[in-house]
């Protein structure tokens, strides 16, 4: 009985120490500016997110208020044929990947100052899902 109590107390103490270490690590990660890894995306859920949040301005295969999206994953920014981009996006020198799309959808005018789009998708899971959908629809 005494051994059990002793082991129990030891386990509780160890758990407390581990929790303190974990908490300290989280605080240090935040303080150092490290951002948590984005959640895994699901293209099926992303199709619905796209339908609900993106199709007011975008389609996969036609330029509307915003450019056509099929092929956007891996495409150079500001290069969808026939779409009138802002000078800022035309000058951008990167291709769209998951990390950049995540930053763009988080705050487009913060990521590319001078961009026309102001729409923000604040939910990280929804961003991950719609990025997975765009990747799939881009054949990547």
């Amino acid at each position: 009985m005494r051994d059990f109590k002793g082991r129990s107390a030891l386990a509780m103490g160890l758990s407390f120490v581990l929790a303190v270490i974990a908490g300290t690590s989280a605080i240090m990660a935040t303080a150092s500016g490290a951002t948590p890894a984005p959640p895994a995306g699901d293209a099926t859920r992303g199709a619905q997110v796209y339908e609900d949040n993106c199709t007011g301005c975008h389609s996969l295969d036609a330029n509307r208020v915003g450019p056509a999206h099929r092929g956007v994953f891996g495409r150079k920014a500001g290069s969808a044929p026939g779409f009138a981009y802002s000078p800022a996006l035309k000058k951008a020198k990167f291709a769209w990947d998951a990390a950049r799309l995540d930053k763009w959808l988080t705050n487009p005018q913060g990521f590319v100052p001078g961009a026309k789009m102001g729409f923000r998708l604040s939910d990280a899971q929804k961003r991950a899902d719609v990025i997975a959908y765009l990747k799939k629809e881009s054949g990547k």
């Binding site: 339908e51 609900d52 949040n53 993106c54 199709t55 007011g56 301005c57 705050n107 487009p108 005018q109 102001g118 729409f119 923000r120 998708l121 604040s122």
Partner: peptide, 18 residues
């Protein structure tokens, strides 16, 4: 219906950018 929902969500989504 689809365009109206998209428009509603677009207007909501730009709120934090103003």
């Amino acid at each position: 219906q689809k365009l109206e929902k998209g428009a509603a969500n677009a207007y909501i989504g730009v709120i934090p950018s103003f």
